[in-house]
């Protein structure tokens, strides 16, 4: 079952390109969490990764998010070969290319919505046109993109779950990432809020954002252009 998951030969066209990635954990017996994974995600693509728990979903997410290193194989993120990077460089790459959206939102409860969004930028060198002074303005723009600009002064605990997740998405968008990596983004949301977040994903996708959504929710995965199933550490394409 080696379907051609990689569909492009020029790595620069792909935001994500995994070739022959393995990840084993040295337990007794050893756990083979990822087996010979090949995956390519084009710029602007909306990919969903589905699979039951224990299938290697989290390991794949951690690998894609540069939170974990593969045991073997190559991972190109936005044209950068990550295997040879030091941890500092991986940290920096993670901060600049990947926007994370977590199931638990991970908003700081003691900071305002706006400050939470601005947090995405403080660990990066200022770039031209993105200095500290205009940071609040950019945070408002990111909040505007998720439809929450009127909530900028609120604390997260005064927002609904869907609003919190949209703040988290605004934070992910703030650093202008090449990839939005979402881990069960609707796992803590009711159906109404789930719907609003999914609508937002569609909008972002239409704007050209690359989305990788890891979920076990069929309704969420159905929205994607392309679905990939993972089971026992192996990927298989699903035709939508």
């Amino acid at each position: 079952m080696s379907e051609p998951l990689a569909h492009s030969d020029t790595p620069d066209d792909d935001v994500i390109r995994l070739t022959g990635v393995n990840r084993t954990f040295d337990s007794d017996p050893p756990v083979h969490a990822l087996r010979d994974v090949d995956l390519a995600v084009r710029r602007g693509e909306h990919l969903s990764i589905v699979g039951p728990s224990g299938s290697g979903k989290s390991t794949l997410l951690n690998t894609l998010g540069l939170l974990d290193r593969p045991s073997s194989g190559a991972y190109w993120l936005d044209g950068v070969e990550t295997a040879t990077l030091t941890d500092r460089q991986r940290t920096s790459l993670r901060g600049s290319r990947i926007g994370f959206v977590f199931q638990a939102f991970h908003l700081l409860p003691y900071r305002t919505v706006e400050e939470n969004v601005m947090l995405a930028e403080i660990y990066r060198k200022t770039r031209p046109g993105r200095d500290r002074r205009s940071r609040a303005k950019r945070a408002r723009a990111a909040l505007d993109r998720v439809g929450l600009s009127q909530r900028h002064g609120f604390r997260p605990d005064r927002l609904s779950g869907g609003e919190r997740q949209r703040v988290a998405i605004a934070r992910a968008l703030m650093s202008d990432p090449a990839l939005l990596l979402c881990d069960e983004p609707t796992g803590n949301l009711d159906s109404e809020n789930t719907f609003s977040v999914l609508e937002l994903f569609d909008e972002l996708c239409a704007q050209g954002m690359t989305l990788v959504v890891i979920t076990h929710d069929e309704a969420v995965s159905r929205r994607a252009n392309r679905r990939v199933r993972i089971s026992d550490g192996q990927l298989s394409q699903e035709i939508v």
Binding site: T24, P30, R69, V80, T84, L85, R88, Q89, S92, S96
Partner: peptide, 25 residues
Amino acid sequence: NRPERSRRPRQRSAERRGTKGVERP
């Protein structure tokens, strides 16, 4: 349960190779 990492010998030349656009934290 993590494997002992197959720590690549981190030769310095490798760090400059293929790291275009990687800033430092």
